[in-house]
């Protein structure tokens, strides 16, 4: 078996992961936190993306909207990462071979790469275009990609449960 599978099995066998898996309450409660954090993180990301596309707050600088919402996005990220890691640990051995989970991880990496690429290219010149109603094409492409990728992350995340029976 692969190194990654061994790692998943070790996490699965830790007392914390076993405790969450065997508790009747822990898993649904953490799952609920994961869904509430979704609104905080991806909801605020979506609003910034919509501003980059010029669909909301067209009269306010895009960098202002990003600065106002970024703390909420990071708070949401903290909730998502913490709850997501706990949920993963509790089912790590089964998730390793779950196609929806694998797709979700790929989409997460692509969403992060898109964010980094945008931040270190187009966004560095935000002082020049930030006040304009119409943002540069690079910003609009990054925003559309971000909306599509995060929607994919949510969709594949929801699909994990539908593929659970088939885990090898």
């Amino acid at each position: 078996m692969s190194l990654l599978f061994d790692l998943c099995r070790s996490i699965y066998d830790t007392p914390l992961a076993t405790g969450i898996r065997e508790s009747e309450v822990a898993f649904p409660v953490i799952e609920t936190l994961h869904v509430l954090g979704l609104a905080l993180m991806t909801g605020t990301i979506a609003i910034v993306d919509l501003r980059l596309l010029g669909w909301v707050f067209p009269d306010e600088p895009a960098s202002d909207i990003a600065d106002q919402l970024l703390p909420a996005t990071w708070a949401g990220f903290a909730v998502m990462a913490a709850s997501g890691l706990l949920l993963f640990g509790a089912e790590a051995e089964k998730l390793y071979s779950n196609p929806a989970f694998r797709l979700k991880l790929v989409l997460l990496i692509l969403a992060a790469a898109n964010m980094l690429a945008f931040h270190f290219t187009v966004y560095r010149r935000v002082a020049i275009w930030g006040r304009a109603r119409k943002t540069p094409r690079g910003a609009r492409i990054a925003a559309a990609l971000s909306l599509a990728l995060w929607a994919g992350v949510i969709a594949s995340g929801r699909m994990i449960a539908y593929f659970h029976g088939r885990a090898a």
Binding site: L38, I45, A46, A72, A151, I154
Partner: peptide, 14 residues
Amino acid sequence: HLLALAVLGGVVLV
């Protein structure tokens, strides 16, 4: 439903 929840939730929170 979940995608719309994320968007509506974000709007309400902001």
